[in-house]
């Protein structure tokens, strides 16, 4: 296969569960790599994102770095996919949304059970948290959504093979789950 699809993946505010599920396609991975070549992903050592055909993103947007990575993916990937509950609606991390960020930071860093020494970290190396956790589609245009927490290996496999075959990926009821 000469014309391999270039695929990149990333985890933003997620738990790596979706990536683990991806690996759960097991031996089908051998079939997959016949058709795709991985660019930047936690599975390779490539650090710089190149031009890609497909970007798979797990996790929602919790901080400024998440936003930068997402935007970079949007710029470099022809097709961008929200993978998993967190990418699609913020998921578990978004359950902090009703609580004001100031209260959260106070509680964690300054409160009784505080873990830092009475200081909210302000190192410029650290990305700043957004006031709320947002799903990806609220910040960039997303082409496809692959729901599940995580999406099952079968769902991921079906989705990818359909896409590779040039069809609109549609998940049947057996594969469509939000949990």
């Amino acid at each position: 296969m000469d014309n391999k699809l270039k695929v990149a993946t990333a985890t933003l505010a997620g738990c790596f569960g979706c990536h683990m599920s991806f690996l759960d396609i097991d031996e089908r991975f051998f079939e997959l790599v016949k058709h795709v070549e991985f660019d930047r992903t936690p599975l390779t050592d490539i650090k710089v994102l190149g031009e890609c055909d497909l970007g798979l993103i797990e996790g929602g947007l919790c901080n400024s770095e998440n936003v930068e990575v997402l935007r970079q993916f949007r710029r470099q990937c022809r097709i961008l996919v929200s993978v998993g509950a967190c990418a699609i609606n913020g998921g578990l991390p978004a359950q902090r949304n009703p609580i004001p960020l100031s209260v959260i930071l106070d509680e964690i860093y300054l409160g009784e059970a505080g873990i830092a020494h009475g200081l909210i970290p302000n190192d410029p190396e650290l990305p700043l948290p957004l006031d709320k956790v947002h799903p990806l589609h609220e910040v960039v245009k997303i082409d496809y959504f692959l729901p599940g927490c995580p999406p099952s290996a079968d769902a991921i496999w079906t989705f990818l093979t359909e896409l590779l075959a040039g069809r609109e990926p549609v998940l049947g009821t057996e594969l469509l789950h939000y949990d």
Binding site: S64, P100, L101, S102, L105, D106, I120, P121, N122, L128, P129, L130, D131, K132, H134
Partner: peptide, 10 residues
Amino acid sequence: ALQAARQMTG
């Protein structure tokens, strides 16, 4: 959306 964090971290 970063304003609250900027305020808290200075």
